[in-house]
């Protein structure tokens, strides 16, 4: 069984001219877990991953696999499997030939080509030119490349883009399985909802900077709890909340009070003699937490 290595970014920075695309990022990615690497388009995700893979040279800092830079890995494809967003295949070359070239260049057995085509469900399409592939098929071919060397580390840039619902379900299971086998799985996405069902940890960047890292559940605590409360007499409700010293703001379906427990707000209304027509905890999804973090990055 391939062993996952720890991916470590330390103070990595990339400047393109005056633009700082990636700004002093430091984080680690652990084996045995699926780590979501999130951020809006243009946040620097792809540049970060390309630096990790030695395709883009950092302006400063390092990115390593178990302490080794990609360039120094003795068997790169047998250590790291990477699929990058711009799935890059010569349109006139068949999928099978593309994989065979990668296998030859990396010194991997050519028998792996048929195996990985089968693994990603392209066994019947291996003889077709990549130019006629749909986006979803190219994503699968990209995945096939990553699996050639049966690596302990998987780095996937936006692997869910362009997949149909069946493909999305398949890749979620695939990511879980890979992590369960002890591999390190790093998956980028610009949408948390795309990956939240499969990731254990999240790393969120915005404008090239780290804005959050931790287990997926840690995102929930990022959002200040709120209670939605409404009354036929909103003005009375508002003054009751003010008198009780509870901050609030007008919302679409009532007032948004800063409180964890609806019961406290209910009590305030009751003692003030205000009729309550709605009272519940605001359901703030992870996506809201994600967007709040990312917006915060904007204002930096």
């Amino acid at each position: 069984m391939p062993v996952g290595a720890v991916i470590e970014f330390s103070n990595i920075t990339k400047r393109f001219g005056d633009v700082t695309a990636v700004d002093d990022l430091s984080f680690t990615v652990e084996p045995g877990r699926v780590t979501g690497f999130l951020g809006p388009n243009g946040a620097g995700k792809t540049t970060t991953l390309r630096m990790l893979l030695g395709l883009v040279s950092p302006s400063s800092g390092t990115a390593t696999f178990g302490g080794l830079r990609y360039h120094d890995l003795p068997h790169p494809l047998a250590t790291v499997g990477a699929a990058l967003e711009a799935a890059s295949f010569h349109p006139g070359r068949t999928a099978r030939n593309h994989l065979a070239i990668c296998a030859t260049a990396a010194g991997l057995p050519s028998a792996r080509v048929a195996e990985v085509l089968h693994l990603v469900g392209l066994a019947e399409h291996g003889g077709q030119r990549a130019g006629v592939y749909s986006l979803g098929m190219r994503q699968r071919l990209g995945l096939a490349c990553t699996l050639l060397g049966d690596p302990g580390v998987l780095v996937l840039d936006e692997p869910i883009n362009g997949l149909d619902p069946e493909g999305i379900k398949w890749i979620r299971g695939f990511l879980r399985d890979m992590a369960a086998e002890g591999r390190t799985v790093l998956v980028s996405s610009h949408l948390l909802s795309e990956v939240q069902q499969s990731v254990d940890d999240v790393i969120i960047i915005a404008k090239g900077r780290l804005v959050h890292r931790g287990p997926l559940s840690s995102l929930e605590t990022q959002v200040a709890p709120q209670v939605v409360v409404d009354s036929p007499d909103r003005a009375a409700l508002a003054s009751a909340l003010s008198q009780a010293g509870v901050a609030f703001s007008p919302g679409r379906t009532g007032l948004l009070a800063a409180a964890t427990d609806p019961a406290t707000i209910g009590h305030i209304a009751f003692t003030a003699g205000v009729e309550v027509s709605a009272l519940h905890r605001q359901k703030k999804g992870l996506e809201d937490a994600f967007l709040a973090l990312v917006d915060g990055g904007d204002s930096l």
């Binding site: 893979l53 030695g54 395709l55 990609y70 360039h71 890995l73 790169p76 494809l77 990477a82 990058l84 711009a86 890059s88 295949f89 010569h90 349109p91 593309h98 070239i101 990668c102 260049a105 990396a106 490349c145």
Partner: peptide, 14 residues
């Protein structure tokens, strides 16, 4: 043109 430098350099970073 076809961005095959990416798979090329991933398979052999030298």
């Amino acid at each position: 043109r076809h961005q095959t430098l990416t798979p090329t350099f991933l398979a052999n970073p030298r």
